[in-house]
Design a binder for these strands. Structure first.
Lengths: 185, 185
DNA sequence: TGTACATCAGTGAACGCGCGTTCACTGATGTAC
DNA sequence: TGTACATCAGTGAACGCGCGTTCACTGATGTAC
């Protein structure tokens, strides 16, 4: 049956939000179209009324999911202490344990290599985050801020990815704490 | 038909080697049992004469594939300059462009989170690498070597993973170069 | 040493199964008059 | 304003397809005597 236009647009957003979460939790290949549609309360059929393919959804949800991260970083740009807190929150056990609500760089870097359709959105997001970190993080020395931002973000992404892969809670905590101490004290 | 025992053992190794390479290139879910067996020159049927399941192969090939890395790092432990060269080679474009021959930490960290069977082997390998780096890398200051090793390895793993995900060659090179400069000059 | 038989890795067709995707149908909404 | 019709998102069964895994069969090798 036909539905009001506003309702359709809202469902489109609901699909995007559910997909962004599920993809970060379980990876692109670990989530089925059916699971995504179930998370929005619909059957899997009408998915193709909203998106051309699963691949198209992957690309669009990566753009959609990255907006929140950029907004959060903009908010933190107001003060040096807020920037340090941003980094602390990033390499935290809370972030490690909630990939669905977390950064897509750490959650999906490995998957993106195998998904050409997602690479442009991922690249754009990574460039933006590095630019904001370089501009607003309170760097201590006189070295190139952009280079320092790349090194710090690489360490943050690597630490979260490794801490999630590891089988030993104390070791996982140690990885996060090491990177936290190195950049925020 | 029956085959000599030596030949059987050799085929077991060939499967492990082919699997270790393919898994790093395309991820655990991106490789089929058929592809692995084809890479060893056999049909897919006899796979189950060698391994209980694909999951069992994933775990065993992770152990198998990590041995080379540890040997390489032990060789580099002989001199400070060799350790720096180890890091340079890690964050190189050559390593980025050949994941099948490269470090499993950077290639499979994201996949391991979703593969419980592989996590013990991955964790053991990561602990070993960090221990060797902490012990033999020429750290400059008096800070905790183990903490510095974790930070450096996180940055190395993160940089290689991000450089592989990105859609822009110059940007990809820049990521590797930033981490290289930070730790080896 | 020679012979008969048991072994077991390799073969390749076949199996369930779950995936992404398609499609004929439904029926409340929006629109034309 | 009221009525008749066209629209189109949702439904849910169905489709190919490729995956991991199984299995009856083959036949050169190893072993018993």
């Amino acid at each position: 049956m036909r539905y009001p236009a506003a309702e359709t647009a809202e469902k489109h957003q609901r699909i995007l939000t559910a997909a962004a979460r599920l993809f970060r939790e379980q990876g692109f290949d670990g989530v089925t179209v059916g699971q995504i549609m179930q998370a929005t309360g619909l059957t899997h059929g009408p998915f193709y009324n909203h998106f051309a393919s699963k691949e198209a959804l992957m690309a669009e949800s990566t753009l959609h999911g990255s907006e929140h991260s950029r907004v959060a970083l903009d908010a933190a740009s107001a003060s040096p202490e807020a920037m340090r807190q941003y980094v602390r929150d990033y390499v935290s056990t809370a972030h490690r344990d909630a990939p669905g609500d977390g950064c897509l760089l750490a959650a999906l870097a490995g998957d993106v290599r195998k998904q050409p359709a997602v690479r442009p959105a991922f690249t754009f997001h990574l460039k933006t985050i590095i630019g904001k970190l370089a501009a607003h993080f309170p760097w201590q020395k006189k070295r190139d801020p952009r280079q320092q931002a790349i090194v710090m973000l690489s360490a943050m992404v690597g630490a979260v990815a490794l801490s999630r892969a590891v089988d030993d809670d104390a070791f996982s905590d140690e990885i996060l704490k090491a990177v936290n101490t190195a950049f925020t004290t």
